[in-house]
Design a protein around this nucleic acid. Structure first.
Length: 574
RNA sequence: GGUGGGAUAGCUCAGCCGGUUAGAGCGCAGGACUCAUAAUCCUGAGGUCCCCGGUUCGAUUCCGGGUCCCACUACCA
């Protein structure tokens, strides 16, 4: 039994996330967590809302709330939506809670003690009417390059030129539209990343073999360009207060740590929250001097987050010279697009997590988004593909198989696992299918190749249909009830097995199947040592004979063309 | 601009560290079956592997150049 720590990139507090966010971090992390639990490993699966920063503060103002009220509300919404998708977090924390504040302040103290933090003065745009400093992106004006009038302070969306807000002609605040903006001096703490260049490179070198290309190429890009010292504080109210040795830092009373400095720390902070709530020991998962040296730490995220996890956060950890657990495997995803374009709230393009659950149960989305995960490149969501995938894979291949076997059992075998007959060539064929396919399935999961895992899962389900066509118990029944009994007994055992392998991706459906067949919890393991015990042929005869089973309620409902039309009109597409 | 990812069947994608007839699912056409949710099973049609060069006995695969899409580019997160 291994110990595995799994974290998903923290969803930002600013509103419910869309399907792309779900598909690129939280869902695959959950599938991986469920797979490893089903293998019998000890898993701790941690997530949280990332609550600090300018967008949260502005959204709160917009909503007429304090930042704390706004985050309280949004956190509950995200937590509820996550639960709706059966995301099996052991803890879903908040970066605004006390453990993260203390840890963030601790890291800043230690880094300063090691000589890795400097105070420096920089120039920043200040909006007099908004009474706030503006991040580059929140300053707009005329592009000096192309004359576009709505260029942002970091980049012109029209011509693509990278800008400094000072370069903008007629700058104004995008918060209020006020042109009363000026450049002011402001003092900030800088993390001297340049001093850790070699340490971080060694850290990446040590792991590169275990990281996908997408991950290593991004990490090396930053390293090859050379790490630059980075400001880790901001002129904001909402965030982790800047302290020095437990007291407010003079001159920094109105500043907080930069959200990207405290957000990754919340992986640890959320674990502390979990430990406090459950009377557990969090250090066992994070301190290599206190038991965390034997575990594997796996992170899941979209590609936009990779640099922060391969370089920035390691700078914090390595710079502290304290024995913190660092990431071992890092799985990054590309984007899920909406019909080839971006998800967009304002243009009514795309489905958000809460809306998705209004349309269909979580398992439908989980299946589609796993089977079509944007692993090697960006992937397009379309209603047509979604409908075809759900109707075929879930409804026709899996749902109908469970239905046809259990109903026949009820009709001809008194609702009990049949006892007669001996297995023959068809059962041998099926056992052989399992012998090749089950190990492949497990290998795909272990390699975190989720599309392939879904494809293999479906192939196993389809093999069940092929088997039952070959053995044709309904034909055999006319001449030999014992012959039919073998087919149906094998079919029922396949139903149970299909439920077991469905658990990581469609947990709710898997539970319905396994409960109906009466598979006890300790027989739901995916571990090959338990699965293949006595050979794969034995898997086809593990249910106690004469044991009563139930016909589960219809597992899925087909998606109709009328629904596709309705959803396309409501959410965009085509 | 820089760095990286991608381009393969009508659609979504595998694959190829160079080697018989390039694969899967969906969709489409035909057939079988009737236990089941008009489901399932079998067979078939369908490809200039983005373009141009190069290396090679042989290139979809390797190399060079180009085209198009996407991400990141450090103060949005």
């Amino acid at each position: 039994m291994a110990r595995i720590l799994i974290t998903s990139a923290l969803p930002y507090i600013n509103g419910v996330k869309h399907l792309g966010n779900l598909a690129g971090s939280m869902l695959p992390a959950d599938v991986y967590a469920r797979f490893n639990r089903a293998m019998g490993h000890e898993v701790l699966f941690i997530c949280a809302t990332d609550e600090h920063g300018t967008p949260a503060e502005l959204a709160a103002i917009e909503a007429g709330q304090t930042a704390a009220q706004y985050c309280d509300e949004q956190h509950e919404i995200q937590k509820r939506v996550g639960a709706g998708f059966n995301l099996s977090f052991d803890w879903f924390g908040r970066s605004s809670r006390e453990p993260n504040r203390k840890l963030t302040q601790h890291f800043a103290d230690v880094l300063e003690d090691k000589g890795l933090i400097d105070e420096r003065t920089s120039k920043q745009v200040y909006s007099v009417d908004d009474k706030r400093f503006l991040p580059d992106r929140y300053v707009e004006g005329t592009c000096p390059n192309c004359g576009y009038e709505k260029a942002r302070g970091d980049q012109c969306d029209n011509c693509g030129t990278l800008l400094d807000p000072i370069q903008l002609i007629n700058p104004y605040s995008s918060v209020s539209g006020s042109r009363n903006v000026e450049i002011r001096d402001t003092r900030h703490l800088y993390l001297l990343q340049s001093k850790l260049q070699d340490k971080v490179r060694k850290f990446v070198d040590d792991r590169a073999a275990n990281w996908p290309n997408l991950t290593t190429s991004i990490a090396y890009k930053w390293l090859d360009e050379g790490l630059i010292d980075r400001s880790i504080t901001r002129d904001l109210q909402w965030g982790v207060p800047v302290t020095r040795n437990g007291a407010p830092r003079p001159g920094f009373e109105n500043k907080v740590f930069y959200v990207w400095f405290d957000a990754p720390v919340e992986y640890i902070g959320s674990t502390v929250e979990w430990a406090e709530a459950n009377n557990q020991n969090w250090e066992r998962w994070w301190r290599t001097d206190k038991g965390a040296d034997d575990l594997t730490y796996v992170q899941f995220m979209g590609k936009d987050n990779v640099a922060f996890h391969t370089v920035s956060f390691p700078v914090t950890i390595l710079g502290s010279e304290e024995p913190w657990k660092l990431v071992d495997k890092l799985k990054a995803f590309n984007w899920l697009n909406w019909y080839g374009g971006k998800f967009s709230t304002s243009q009514k393009r795309g489905v958000f997590m809460d809306q998705a659950l209004e349309l269909l149960p979580g398992d439908y989305w989980r299946w589609y988004l796993t089977a079509n995960a944007p692993e090697s490149s960006d992937t397009a969501f379309t209603w047509e593909a979604f409908k075809a995938c759900i109707n075929s894979d879930l409804n026709d291949v899996l749902g109908n198989f469970v239905n046809r076997i259990t109903k026949y059992t009820a009709a001809k075998f008194d609702g009990k696992v049949p006892d007669g007959g001996e297995p023959g060539e068809h059962e041998a064929w099926m056992a052989n299918e399992l012998a090749t396919r089950l190990p492949q399935l497990i290998a795909h999961y272990e390699a975190m190749e989720f599309r392939k895992a879904a494809t293999e899962t479906r192939a196993i389900w389809a093999a069940g249909n092929e088997y039952i066509t070959k053995s044709a118990p309904w034909t055999a029944y006319k001449t030999s009830v014992d012959q039919a009994a073998v087919g149906i007994r094998t079919g029922l055992n396949l139903v149970a097995l299909f439920g077991v392998i469905a658990q990581p991706i469609v947990p709710e459906t898997a539970k319905k199947i396994l409960d109906a067949i009466g598979v006890p919890d300790d027989r739901r393991s995916l571990n090959p040592e338990k699965l293949g015990q006595g050979g794969y042929a034995a898997l086809l005869d593990v249910l106690p004979r004469s044991k009563p089973i139930e016909v589960p309620p219809q597992l899925f409902t087909k998606i109709e063309d009328t629904q596709v039309a309705e959803w396309t009109a409501r959410f965009g597409g085509g």
